[in-house]
């Protein structure tokens, strides 16, 4: 068995005033270097799982082990090694791109020279060098999304968690982001990728987990899952087969 980047064992979480658990006895193993697609309809339990994985929420039961460390005991160490790009644009709109990145670099505890080096690298990779001195609220949706991703990567995390990283961006920006994620994968970084755009997941993910009503309904490598459901021509067909066609709230 390969080394685990993430190992969740019997994870359970029920919100107060809720009649059923958001996540129920969830067990998951993500090998190092994998790009793991965490898929599921709205309200399936993806965000709750990710929050527990990041240490933002305490599980009612079960254990969270990230990069070989237990979340209960070593959350500080774990958070130094993970980068999270949430669906929301988590930036300061009245700061420039450079000021935003420099501030987050400082908060990661990086030195000034290291921050500058990383900023220059990512500005170049994501095509924002020319815009680095511009105020963020003047950026297009795609530019903000790229910058949001850069802020999660500055400190060179070993595990990157991405929630809808391409939401609201144009085709070019989406392509640039996916190309970069492929590059990141080739460098051995583990990526957890949560998205509703299944063709993107099909393009970059090595492993998949489809979650519904707080439980995995299928989980494994993309190849194995597609082979098991050979009647499905695409991931979207598979997804609808497993989760049904009923609209979710």
């Amino acid at each position: 068995m390969s080394t685990s980047a993430v190992h969740l064992i019997n994870l359970t979480k029920q919100y107060p005033h809720s009649t059923k658990p958001a996540v129920s006895n969830l067990t998951l193993h993500i090998p190092e270097g994998a790009v793991y697609g965490l898929l599921g309809p709205n309200g399936a339990g993806k965000s709750t799982t990710v929050m527990m994985l990041c240490g933002l929420m305490r599980p009612d039961a079960g254990t969270v082990n990230v990069l070989g460390m237990d979340m209960q005991e070593q959350s500080v160490e774990i958070r130094k090694k993970i980068g999270v790009a949430s669906q929301d644009i988590a930036l300061f709109p009245t700061l420039t791109a450079y000021e935003n990145l420099f501030y987050f670099g400082r908060m990661y505890g990086m030195s000034g020279s290291m921050i500058r080096q990383q900023i220059d690298k990512y500005l170049h990779v994501f095509g924002l060098t020319e815009k680095s001195k511009k105020i963020v609220h003047t950026f297009s949706g795609g530019m903000k999304r790229r910058l949001n991703l850069m802020a999660a990567l500055l400190h060179q995390p070993k595990l990157v968690i991405l929630d809808e990283p391409t939401a609201g961006v144009d085709v070019q920006s989406r392509n640039m982001i996916l190309d970069f994620l492929t590059l990141l994968k080739s460098e051995g970084t583990t990526i957890i990728y949560s998205s509703h755009v299944l063709e993107e997941a099909e393009r970059i993910c090595s492993h998949l987990g489809v979650i519904d009503e707080g439980k995995f309904i299928t989980e494994g490598t993309l190849v194995d899952i597609m082979n098991t459901h050979s009647d499905c021509q695409s991931l979207e067909q598979l997804f609808l087969k497993l989760t049904g066609k009923n609209i979710r709230d």
Binding site: L56, A90, L91, F92, M107
Partner: peptide, 21 residues
């Protein structure tokens, strides 16, 4: 505003950033 826009969430995810913030 930072809490609503999400930048506070990013800071919460950064280890040891709460006291400095």
């Amino acid at each position: 505003k930072e809490r609503e826009e999400g930048s506070m969430l990013r800071l919460r995810l950064i280890s040891g950033s709460q006291f400095p913030v």
